[in-house]
């Protein structure tokens, strides 16, 4: 989900936190924070805190070697030069092993203070992905306007304008289809359509996405994982 936004990432491993990643794209506009709790894994063991510097394109090449149904075991030594990846099918009569070179990555780490949030929107992840993709064809900027009874996505481009308005509703049968708006104060913020399209690459990871918006501040887009999260912080655009 994140390899088009960032190329090199440090994966921090610890027994208590599981795997955490913070990465910022080269333009310093999009920050990615990933947390995969230890409980997400069938087995997780980390005797000593470890930083694995990975080239995501290379990691992706290795991960594609396995079949979906296979078990994947990732292993690294105490002061590793390589990450080992072992795929095994259920009957353990096919085993494939790969080793991926690790890198020393010197990356910025930003401190994100707890933010006051003006509004929180939860909507189906596929719905947000469709809006982000469709609106990008109209404009390189997407404005999100939230009031207590609607969230409006608005694009103004060369060929014309477009908007999608969603109203809050609760779907009792399929809660993940609901649209929820929690509002402390109304917000209107504009974001780069390109970055929103990078963010929605996480769509398959979660049925819903939660968007937290605060006036004149970066937005938080959160995809909850079964045990952990993938968060994107996106700096807004301002009227020039």
């Amino acid at each position: 989900s994140i390899k088009d936004s960032v190329k090199l990432c440090n994966f921090n491993c610890s027994q208590s936190q599981g795997i955490t990643v913070q990465a910022i794209d080269d333009s310093r506009v999009l920050l990615i924070a990933l947390k995969i709790d230890a409980g997400s894994f069938q087995e997780f063991r980390c005797d000593k805190d470890l930083v694995l510097g990975l080239d995501l394109e290379s990691l992706s090449k290795i991960l594609k070697q396995g079949n979906n149904e296979e078990y994947l075991t990732l292993m690294a030594e105490d002061s590793p030069d390589n990450l080992m990846a072992v795929f095994e099918d259920k009957k353990k009569d096919r085993i494939s092993e790969f080793s991926l070179k690790l890198m020393d990555i010197d990356s910025d780490v930003l401190t994100i203070d707890d933010m006051e949030t003006d509004c929180t929107i939860t909507l189906p992840a596929y719905e947000f992905a469709k809006i982000a993709k469709d609106m990008k064809t109209l404009s390189e900027s997407l404005k999100i306007v939230v009031t207590k009874d609607s969230v409006k996505f608005n694009a103004e481009g060369q060929i014309g304008t477009g908007s999608v308005i969603l109203k809050p509703h609760t779907d009792m049968d399929k809660p993940e289809e609901s649209v929820k708006i929690e509002l402390n104060s109304p917000v209107a913020l504009t974001f780069g359509a390109k970055y929103l399209n990078d963010i929605v690459k996480a769509t398959s990871l979660s049925s819903t996405v939660t968007i937290k918006l605060t006036d004149k501040s970066p937005a938080l887009f959160e995809y909850k994982l079964p045990s952990g999260y993938l968060r994107y912080y996106l700096a807004p655009k301002f009227d020039d």
Binding site: S27, L31, L110, S217, F238
Partner: peptide
């Protein structure tokens, strides 16, 4: 007509 802001103007480097 819009100017893209940077995360560095909101978050501190640690």
């Amino acid at each position: 007509k819009y100017k893209q802001s940077s995360l560095l103007s909101f978050f501190t480097n640690s």
